Simulated scan of single mutants.
Amino acid sequence: MKSIVYIINSHFWKSITGPFFAFGFPIIFIAILGTMLGYDQVLGGILSIPTATVSLTILPVALFEFKSSSLLKRIGVTSIKPWMFMLAISSYYIIVMILGTIFTLLMAMIIFSGYFNEGRLIETVVVPNQNGGTMNMDIIAPSFNEVLKHVNWGGFIWANLMNIIVSTSLGLLISSLCKSTLSIQGISIPILILSEFLAAQVLPIGMVKEINALYYLSYITPFKYTSGLIVESWTGSMIVDYNSFVADVSKNAVVNMTYDSTQNIFNINESFYTFYKNFSSGTADINHGMLIFDKADKVANLIMPFVFTGLFTGIALKRFKWSNR
C-alpha cells in the first residue's frame, strides 16, 4: 500500500497543475477579490474553493490516467484490490483538500494582517439625525480577529465535510463519464467557474442574493448548498443596530458590525442575515442586514448535499470501468 501512496503522491507533484489548483488558485481570489470586496464579504466562500478545484480539476484526471494505464493490470496480480486503490487515491486527495483549505486560511491571515485588530470601513451612508437633518454614518466591518472569534467551528467542520463528500462524488462522476482528459477539463472547468460565482464562492453572498437571476440559477449547482453552510458557519448572522449610536449633527456616527455568535446551521428556525453595502436600496431589514437564508433555504442546505452525493455516486458506480481501452 505504501508503494501505491508513493505513486499517487508522485503523480500529484509531477506537474504544476495539482499544486497550483490546490494551493495557489484560491490565493488569487483572496488577493484580488478579498482586497476589492473585503475579507468579511468573500473569505468564507473562498475557503470552499480548494475542495472544489481539487475534486473537479485534479482528482478526475488522476483517476482517469491511472485506470487507463497498465498500473491497475499490475495491481491485479498483487494482493492489492481495486477498491483499496480507489480508497487510497480518494483519501490522498481528501487530505490535499483539507490542507488546501488550511493553507488558504493562513495566507488570508497574512494578506489581511493589517485588519487583524482593526476592522475595515465598508461604506459611509447618510442617515437622519436628531435635529431633522442628515448625517454621515461609517459602517465598520469586524476585525479579522473578531471574525475568527465568531466562527461556529463545529458547523464549519461539518460544512466542509459535506463539501468534500459532494465534490469528491462529482469528481468521480466526471471521471466515469469522460473518455479523455480533454473532455474532463471541458466539463470540469465550466462547472467550477459557474459555481464560483453562482454559489457565492468568490462573490459576497449578499451580492448574489441581490441579483435575482444569479440567485435563482444558483439552485442548479450542488456547491450552492455546501458553500452556503460554510459561509453561514464562518460569518455568523450579522446584526446592524442603527439605533445603538448617539446622533450628533456635527460628527460622523460609527457603527461597528456585530454578530449573532450563536448562529447554528442545524437550527432551521434561525434565519441567516449578512451585510452587503448595497442593501440600503431597500431590500433588507435595516436592523438585521440582508436576509439570505430563511427556514426553507436552511433545510435545503442541510438536505441537498446528501441528494447530490447519492445521485453522483450512484451514476458513477454504474458507469465506472477500470479501463477505457
Rank of each mutant, 00 (worst) to 15 (best):
172 L>V: 08
189 I>G: 04
172 L>N: 11
227 S>F: 04
215 Y>G: 03
169 S>K: 05
182 L>N: 11
217 L>R: 01
189 I>E: 04
222 P>T: 01
180 S>F: 07
194 L>Y: 11
183 S>T: 14
168 T>Y: 15
196 E>Q: 13
209 K>Q: 15
222 P>Q: 05
210 E>M: 15
170 L>I: 12
183 S>E: 13
173 L>K: 09
212 N>R: 09
189 I>W: 13
166 V>K: 02
189 I>A: 05
176 S>A: 15
228 G>C: 00
160 N>E: 10
203 L>P: 02
175 S>Y: 08
174 I>W: 14
177 L>I: 15
162 M>C: 15
155 G>E: 01
175 S>K: 06
154 G>Y: 00
163 N>H: 14
169 S>F: 10
188 S>G: 15
167 S>Y: 04
177 L>M: 14
221 T>E: 00
156 F>I: 01
215 Y>M: 06
219 Y>Q: 03
200 A>V: 07
221 T>P: 00
215 Y>I: 04
209 K>E: 12
184 I>V: 11
214 L>S: 02
197 F>I: 12
201 Q>D: 03
199 A>C: 13
205 I>D: 11
212 N>D: 13
157 I>R: 00
229 L>E: 01
161 L>A: 15
179 K>E: 13
200 A>Y: 10
195 S>N: 04
217 L>Y: 02
186 G>Q: 06
216 Y>R: 07
173 L>I: 12
225 Y>F: 06
219 Y>D: 05
172 L>D: 05
169 S>P: 07
209 K>F: 09
208 V>H: 07
153 W>M: 03
155 G>L: 02
205 I>N: 07
202 V>A: 15
204 P>W: 08
182 L>V: 09
172 L>T: 07
154 G>T: 00
227 S>N: 15
206 G>W: 13
194 L>H: 06
202 V>P: 03
229 L>K: 02
192 L>F: 14
155 G>I: 01
165 I>R: 04
156 F>G: 02
170 L>N: 10
164 I>V: 03
214 L>W: 11
202 V>E: 05
197 F>L: 10
206 G>M: 05
213 A>W: 15
171 G>H: 10
179 K>R: 15
183 S>V: 12
195 S>E: 03
218 S>L: 02
183 S>L: 13
158 W>F: 15
202 V>Q: 11
209 K>G: 03
159 A>H: 07
208 V>N: 06
167 S>C: 03
189 I>D: 04
220 I>V: 14
198 L>D: 04
168 T>V: 12
193 I>A: 11
206 G>Y: 14
190 P>H: 11
178 C>W: 15
163 N>R: 04
227 S>E: 05
199 A>I: 04
189 I>K: 10
192 L>H: 05
